[in-house]
C-alpha cells in the first residue's frame, strides 16, 4: 500500500449542510471517497491509501483539477483506492461533492 497526503488551496467553499458523505467501494478498479467538513476553510485535504504504487503525480493532477472545478473548500477527504483509473477517481470525487451538498439527511 502507498500512502499519499495532499493539502490544496480550494477557493470555493463546499456547499450544503451534510457533515459527511461517502461514496464508492474499495474493489479492483474502484475506490471509496469519504468527505468530512473538518478542514480549514479555503483548503481541501486528501489522505489516500492506494494499492497502485507510483502514481503520485497522476493523483496530484487529478486532485488539482478537482479543487479548481468543484466547491471543495473546507473538506477533509479520505480515499481508499483499489487501483481505480483517474477518470473513476475524478467521477467519485465529483459525486462526493454533489452528495455532501445535499440536505442534511
Amino acid at each position: 500500500m502507498e500512502r499519499l497526503t495532499f493539502t490544496l488551496a480550494a477557493a470555493k467553499q463546499a456547499g450544503g449542510l451534510r457533515q459527511q458523505a461517502i461514496i464508492g467501494v474499495v474493489a479492483s478498479g474502484n475506490l471509496e471517497v469519504m468527505l468530512e467538513r473538518s478542514a480549514p476553510s479555503g483548503t481541501c485535504t486528501f489522505e489516500i491509501e492506494t494499492a497502485a504504487h507510483g502514481f503520485g503525480a497522476v493523483w496530484e493532477a487529478v486532485l488539482n483539477d478537482f479543487v479548481a472545478r468543484r466547491a471543495a473548500g473546507g473538506l477533509r477527504i479520505t480515499i481508499n483506492d483499489g487501483g481505480a483509473r483517474p477518470d473513476t477517481v475524478a467521477l467519485r470525487l465529483a459525486q462526493g461533492v454533489r452528495l455532501i451538498e445535499g440536505d442534511e439527511a
Binding site: M1, Q20, I22, V25, V26, E32, M34, A51, T78, N80
Partner: peptide, 20 residues
C-alpha cells in the same frame, strides 16, 4: 460508521486496501 475509521487491522499484512 466510516468516520470512526475502524478498519481491518489484518489486510495490511497482505498489502490489501481497507475500507472505512
Amino acid at each position: 460508521g466510516p468516520a470512526a475509521r475502524e478498519t481491518s487491522p489484518h489486510l495490511a499484512i497482505f498489502g490489501l486496501p481497507t475500507q472505512l
